[in-house]
C-alpha cells in the first residue's frame, strides 16, 4: 500500500482561534516522521485534531487514513482503525484498573475487526508478553489507570498500551517531556521494538534529544500552523543548533 495517511490543507481552531493554517503531510507505512517547532506552533493541536478531540474544530481540509475519511469518524472509531496517541499528559482514572481498562480497549477493537473477544486468561498472557518485550515490570495490572504513577511510569504506560493495541499510526506527543535519560531510553526502545514495515509514527517533540533514540526518516518544522520546512534527520541537528528563530 502506498499511503497510510494523507493530510491535505488542514485548518483547525480552538474557540475561534485558528491554530492550524493549512497542514499538508503524507505518511507511508514503515516511516517515522518527526514534527518539531516552537511552542504554540500547533504541534499538539495536530495530534488532537487527528484523534478527534472535541475541543478543536476542523474548519477546512481533509484527512484520509488508508483511504477512509478520518474526519468523519468518532474518536473511538479512529482508535479502532489504528490511530494511537501517546498523550503528553496521560489522564489518571481513579478506580478503573489497568487490567479492566486495557481488556475493554483490546476487546472493543477486536469486536470492530469482527474477532472474538479475548478470554481473561488469553488477555493476561498477552499483557505479560508485551511487558516482557518492553522490559517493563509486571506490577501495574491492579493499579488504577495512571493514578499515582510518576512521570516516567505514565509515559512507559502509554507505550505499553501502544504495544497492546498494535496501531498502524502512532502519534507520540512530547513523549520525552519530563523524562530522565533512563526512562527516555526505555520508552524509545519500546517504540523501536514496535516498529514494523506496516506501521508508522509521528513523533512530536520540541527537542532533538529524543531523535537520537528514535531516528526519523523525515523531520518537519511546524511554525504558525503550517509545515514550513521538511528534511532528513540532519534537520533536527540543525534546529538544535540554530533554534526556531528563523521560523517565528
Amino acid at each position: 500500500m502506498s499511503e497510510l495517511i494523507v493530510i491535505k490543507d488542514l485548518h483547525a481552531s480552538i474557540q475561534d482561534k485558528e491554530i492550524l493554517r493549512g497542514v499538508n503531510l503524507t505518511i507511508r507505512p514503515g516511516e517515522v516522521h518527526a514534527i518539531m517547532g516552537p511552542n504554540g506552533a500547533g504541534k499538539s493541536t495536530l495530534s488532537a485534531v487527528l484523534t478527534g478531540n472535541p475541543l478543536y474544530t476542523v474548519t477546512q481540509g481533509e484527512v484520509w487514513l488508508k483511504g477512509k475519511n478520518l474526519l468523519e469518524m468518532t474518536p473511538e472509531q479512529r482508535a479502532r482503525e489504528g490511530v494511537f496517541l501517546s498523550f503528553q499528559y496521560p489522564v489518571e482514572i481513579p478506580g478503573v484498573s489497568m487490567v479492566n481498562f486495557m481488556r475493554t480497549a483490546v476487546n472493543e477493537k477486536r469486536k470492530y475487526e469482527g474477532k472474538e473477544p479475548l478470554s481473561a486468561t488469553e488477555f493476561l498472557r498477552l499483557m505479560r508478553e508485551k511487558k516482557k518485550m518492553l522490559e517493563m515490570a509486571d506490577k501495574l495490572n491492579n493499579r488504577s489507570v495512571n493514578e499515582g504513577f510518576s512521570g516516567g511510569e505514565k509515559k512507559k504506560n502509554e507505550i505499553f498500551q501502544m504495544a497492546m493495541l498494535e496501531p498502524c499510526l502512532s502519534i507520540l506527543d512530547e513523549t520525552d517531556s519530563g523524562l530522565d535519560i533512563d526512562a527516555l531510553r526505555i520508552v524509545a526502545d519500546g517504540v523501536n521494538k514496535l516498529k514494523t514495515k506496516d506501521n508508522a509514527s509521528i513523533v512530536i517533540t520540541h527537542y532533538q534529544r529524543l531523535l537520537d533514540y528514535i531516528v526519523p526518516d523525515f523531520v518537519h518544522v511546524l511554525a504558525n500552523g503550517r509545515i514550513v520546512k521538511t528534511g532528513g534527520k540532519e534537520l533536527a541537528l540543525e534546529l538544535e543548533e540554530k533554534g526556531y528563530a528563523e521560523f517565528e
Partner: peptide
C-alpha cells in the same frame, strides 16, 4: 478521562459506565 478512553477505542457510553462504577 472519557476522551482518553475513547482514544483507546472505548465508546463514550461504556466509558461513562466504567467511570460511574469506579
Amino acid at each position: 478521562a472519557l476522551f482518553y478512553m475513547q482514544q483507546r477505542g472505548i465508546d463514550p457510553a461504556t466509558g461513562r459506565k466504567m467511570l460511574i462504577n469506579a
